[in-house]
């Protein structure tokens, strides 16, 4: 059962640096049920990507972007946040279970913090329960 608990993380390549933290299949070494998909900027992330992850059976999904104010492309992280909160088009569908969707704003040098946050998220998903794979 635990094996089926998958989490999809869509991460900005400029925010928290995961180059040394992934196994050869793109899973987090410290949290092997977390699959990482990289994009150039959190502003590139479409809400439908996160919706798809949940629809196809992920237990949870998260995005990372740089610290608010430090987006390399100025506004990408701000826009993603607004899309997830439903104040900017295209919005995350209101029917999506918000407890399974997270976003973290961390700079490249904040892996330790990232690790803690992912661990917490993972545990909170355990209490929510996951769809059977």
């Amino acid at each position: 059962m635990a094996k089926d608990k998958k989490v999809i993380g869509i991460v900005c390549e400029r925010s928290v640096d995961l180059t040394d933290q992934l196994d050869s299949n793109g899973y987090l070494k410290d949290n092997p049920n977390v699959k990482i998909v990289t994009v150039p900027c959190s502003g590139h992330i479409q809400p439908i990507m996160m919706e798809t992850a949940l629809k196809k059976g992920a237990c949870g999904t998260f995005a990372t972007g740089c610290r608010m104010g430090d987006c390399h492309y100025r506004e990408g992280n701000k826009f993603l946040r607004e899309r997830l909160l439903g104040t900017r088009m295209p919005k995350l569908k209101p029917t999506v279970d918000k407890r399974r969707v997270q976003a973290y704003w961390l700079s490249a040098v904040e892996y330790e913090k990232f690790k803690d946050l992912i661990h917490q998220f993972d545990e909170s998903l355990d209490t929510l329960g996951c769809p059977e794979g």
């Binding site: 502003g43 590139h44 088009m89």
Partner: peptide, 12 residues
């Protein structure tokens, strides 16, 4: 163009 992809995130 910055090749940043913010437009991709914006397009539905």
């Amino acid at each position: 163009c910055a090749n940043c992809g913010l437009c991709v995130g914006a397009c539905a």
